[in-house]
Amino acid sequence: MGEFNNNFILGCSAIGAGLAVIAGIGPGVGQGIAAGHAAAAVGRNPGAKSDVTSTMLLGQAVAETTGLYGLLIAMLLLFVKPLLP
């Protein structure tokens, strides 16, 4: 078997980048759950709206981190191209 050429590696990198951003599913579900519970909390106690909102945004931004790691891997594969010889 000969060596793979660069186009093959670039194509595989693109597929890998596509697979890496599937990591966005998790934070999406998590943020949705957080937003849903925050909406329920505001419905039960409308006076605490600003506190609930800021807590929700903080939690959502922390939950987003795992998705951003997937995004970073995709960026590295697409633009830095670490796999090319």
């Binding site: 987003e64 951003l68 970073l72």
Partner: peptide, 13 residues
């Protein structure tokens, strides 16, 4: 690392 990567990746995206 997680603190800085979170900020970096958000702004970069």
């Amino acid at each position: 690392i997680s603190l800085s990567l979170r900020l970096f990746a958000n702004v970069l995206s």
